[in-house]
Nucleic acid binder design. Structure first.
Lengths: 243, 243
DNA sequence: TGACATCTGTGACCTGCGTCACAAACGATT
DNA sequence: AATCGTTTGTGACGCAGGTCACAGATGTCA
């Protein structure tokens, strides 16, 4: 059904595209949506359309009516919301295996967040109706869906708690860096930071200057190092401590 | 099946208990869980145990293993989470019709929040297993459950956004007052504020002194008035502006 | 290679709110 | 009524982080 074409990937960075289909997907055996029984998976996969999205383009915007659900197969996508006064907050960085737009599809309303590719990204796109029809007729799919939303709820709640009660700017930056590095198993994970300080600031609900200062501080303490656009985490534990 | 005993309620405050069973419940026709088809409702109602809980007692604690799901029939319940370092955050004030402990029941883990009655409260309590069994066998119930979690997720996300991007202490206080007054339709809603400044402070992740200052300010601007334990919102719009 | 735009780094200052300290008000108990 | 514990009110001070202003670095295009 799906051909394995042998993905070309060489380096060890977080920025790569790697999955050619659910059956050969590396993430298939983790606790994710794509991890269905073989029969269900065949049907499921036939409903979706595999597509590649260039860096910087937007899968969907907040407040847009939800027409599609996406499963992220490769690459990272940034998820943001914004408040009335236009300020933007990073919700999280979606990783391969994540489902995007599920909440909006289920509630039948508009997307609650904006999803933008921060690197070339591979997704599987489903018509909202097809997706809902599938999960309504597959108990395993339905349970997965409910649990995933539940997980997102708990994450959001945890975020709200941390944001309200602690989390300095340094903490937010640390969390972001760790999320960006997720997937790289190296002891000193390295990845391409393609965002400007300005963009990072909007994502974290702070200012450009604060970002500059925090990054300088982290470099000074030799917790990270930056050469051009390449960022290396030297001491992951120190970052985790800040979150 | 359930006898209507004629609830005795006279005043116009938010603090009252009023429901005697799902069939006679005022909230039944809103978009809530109790609004099931009559047959399903009969079955559903027989699974649960109606109980009254005195003010101050705790329905369940954060991190406790989830054994029960509750439907709040009358009164208000405060829902809080706390961070590692012991600080507490008010998640929201639950109102009649709300389901408590649903997320934990579904994920089969521990409660993510603490639920404490802030006044005498009437709830319907379900064994987790009974509840799950019911929703798994009633499409309408199942959809309700999924949508409710979804709604909680969206609320939590909205909270996180507001907390991260704006929401001063004054804003948090305003939100709390509005939540406490919810249900009172009066133009100048009045209710009994039974919490001390100290308690309010923990609930909002701030300090006692800040609460005192904010309330003084609100009184000075004639947005609220306080006589003893009775709090009146004089200008709701002004409060909404602060959120 | 020079010109121009964008990005990064840093100091000076201001504001919101947490912390500390203490005084006044209120409520219960004898 | 006198006493004591709790709650409320308020001033003084400090710190994190936002705002402003500007200088240097880096990238891009003719």
């Amino acid at each position: 059904m799906l051909k394995v074409q042998g993905a070309t990937m060489t380096d060890n960075c977080a920025n790569r595209i790697e999955n050619e289909g659910c059956f050969t997907c590396r993430e298939r055996h983790a606790d994710w949506f794509c991890n269905l029984s073989p029969q269900a998976l065949v049907e499921f996969e036939s409903l979706g359309m595999q597509m590649t999205v260039p860096a910087g383009s937007t899968l969907f915007f907040e407040a847009q009516t939800a027409r599609s659900v996406y499963i992220l197969c490769g690459g990272h996508v940034k998820l943001t919301t914004s408040s009335k006064d236009g300020k933007t907050l990073l919700v999280r960085i979606a990783k391969p295996g994540d489902v995007l737009g599920l909440s909006a599809a289920i509630s039948g309303t508009s997307y609650e967040i904006t999803a933008q590719a921060i690197e070339p990204v591979q997704v599987k796109s489903f018509q909202r109706q097809d997706f809902l029809h599938f999960i309504e007729h597959h108990l395993e799919g339905s349970m997965h869906a409910t649990k995933m939303i539940n997980k997102e709820y708990r994450d959001a709640l945890g975020d709200a708690t941390r944001l309200a009660l602690s989390m300095s700017i340094a903490g937010r930056v640390a969390r972001l860096l760790l999320e960006m590095a997720s997937g790289v198993r190296d002891a000193k994970p390295r990845f391409t930071m393609s965002l400007t300080h300005e963009e990072l600031a909007t994502m974290l609900g702070t200012t450009r200057e604060s970002i500059t200062r925090v990054l300088s501080e982290l470099k000074r303490k030799e917790i990270i190092s930056i050469k051009g656009t390449s960022l290396t985490i030297l001491r992951r534990a120190a970052l985790e401590l800040l979150v």
